[in-house]
Amino acid sequence: MENDKKKYTSGFKVPSSYFEALDDKLFSIVSEDKFPENTGFNVPEDYFETLEEKILSKTIHEKESKVISIFKRKNIWYTTSIAASILMLLFLNWNKSNTNITNWELAEIETYIYNNLDIEAQEVAQLLNEEDLESLQWESLSITEETIENYLLDSLDDTSLLIE
């Protein structure tokens, strides 16, 4: 019997693991018949009709604001001041509103922003136009060069940026 099989082989072949996978395949097909065809999810009326405009207003039609790349500025101190000032302004605002976080250190504020606010540094930069930056009163913030330097050393990975 064994010899006969070898004698009359057809020459046809199947992909490797075909028969092993066949059980699973058939089981899935039979099982799928018992599953509902649709999810039952729905959308509000006119949702898809109004979607294009919504997306275009956030992309192509987005009001162009002047983006200031903080790493292209020649004067690194200017950039540092922006970062430090934003932190300081946030700190002062929290103080004014008498919340219970008045004693927070800058580092804690930074951690809070990182963990709780869903924003990236670039997005913060995009919020500020040139006018906003000019209106910041640098003198009144009285940030010493040492503070700025420490902040930079702690925050920047590439210290070569500090070398002017």
Binding site: T39, F41, V43, P44, F48, L51, E52, L56, T59, I60
Partner: peptide, 27 residues
């Protein structure tokens, strides 16, 4: 790009929406 992007959204918005909806479940 504006015309093309509109076309892109029109073509794929529903398919992508239903794909996402099945993951996050809420509209």
């Amino acid at each position: 790009r504006e015309k093309a992007f509109r076309e892109l959204i029109t073509t794929y918005k529903e398919r992508l929406y239903w794909h996402i909806r099945k993951i996050v479940l809420n509209h």
